[in-house]
Amino acid sequence: MRKAVLSLVAVAAIAVPVLAGNFNKVVSVGEKAPDISGLPAVYKGETTSVSLKDIKENVVVVVFLANHCPAVGMYEDRLIEFTKDYEGKGVRVLGISVSQQEGDKLPGIKDYMKDKGSNYIYAYDESQAVGKAYGASNTPHFFVLDKERNIRYIGAMDNSPKEEKVTKHYLRDAVDAVLAGKTPEVVETRPYGCGISYAK
């Protein structure tokens, strides 16, 4: 027991949380997540629609994606593996494209998911309103929401676009912490990937 207490103290001393709002210009960790409502989506090959209020899982991982983006391609296997690993553990992964390129729209999403074997829900935000509300600047750009749908983590999945060089698993660590009722050690990182262009 004493050991456990000492360990906790040590962890608290080492873990200096990265301040929220360093990289995201619109939302901060701790804030209520902007609503997502009635977006057309693809799941398991079928067209559906998705709303945050209908998701029952305790944790929602929102990730902004774009099929055309090479960085999204570099992370696709990691995202599929993540979704698989957390299936049935109270975590729902929701991909969202806000890109206005033709191949990034719903038919393109359907083809992309079939081609890649993507196992998450992948929605399309034609108005780009959700992307703007989340301050999504990149693809991929991750947001972890807790049971109350407060934002608990914002940023990159890990610390290297090259999978073999990854040493820090920010997304997994954040989700594990939230599932365990704890505060993630790192709450915000710089997203890595393609920039998102918003219509003026």
Binding site: F23, K25, V26, G131, K132, G135, S137, N138, G195, Y198
Partner: peptide
Amino acid sequence: NAIPAVFIFGPDGKEVKRFTMDDPKNQFT
């Protein structure tokens, strides 16, 4: 966070202005 991004520096090498895509509500052209 993202590119393209444009920076302007003075002759002393100090940044005087930056244009980025990082804020969805204020992206540059």
